[in-house]
């Protein structure tokens, strides 16, 4: 059974560093263990979200790409 996403962030069209910065801002509004879904179109966001999760300890639960939109599901640490 999959956990429901608490918050979805539409970061499409934004360039570095806004996808990460806005995600970090939004993470403050959710509880630990909750899922946040981020949708981005910046190709740089793929390595960036991975690195950001590794550094902050948040868990990158899912990462998919569909028609130029990168979807990241992150569980707040």
């Amino acid at each position: 059974m999959s956990q429901t996403v608490t918050l979805t962030l539409d970061l499409k069209g934004l360039s570095c560093p806004l996808p990460i910065a806005k995600t970090a801002q939004a993470m403050r509004t959710v509880q630990s263990g909750e899922l946040v879904e981020a949708l981005a179109t910046d190709p740089g966001s793929v390595p960036d979200f991975t690195a950001w999760c590794e550094t902050t300890g948040n868990e990158l639960v899912e990462h998919t790409a569909d028609d130029g939109v990168f979807r990241f599901v992150i569980r707040k640490v």
């Binding site: 570095c16 560093p17 990460i20 910065a21 970090a24 950001w52 550094t55 902050t56």
Partner: peptide
């Protein structure tokens, strides 16, 4: 600076 802060 913003990215570093975002990374905690």
């Amino acid at each position: 600076a913003t990215t570093a802060a975002a990374m905690g």
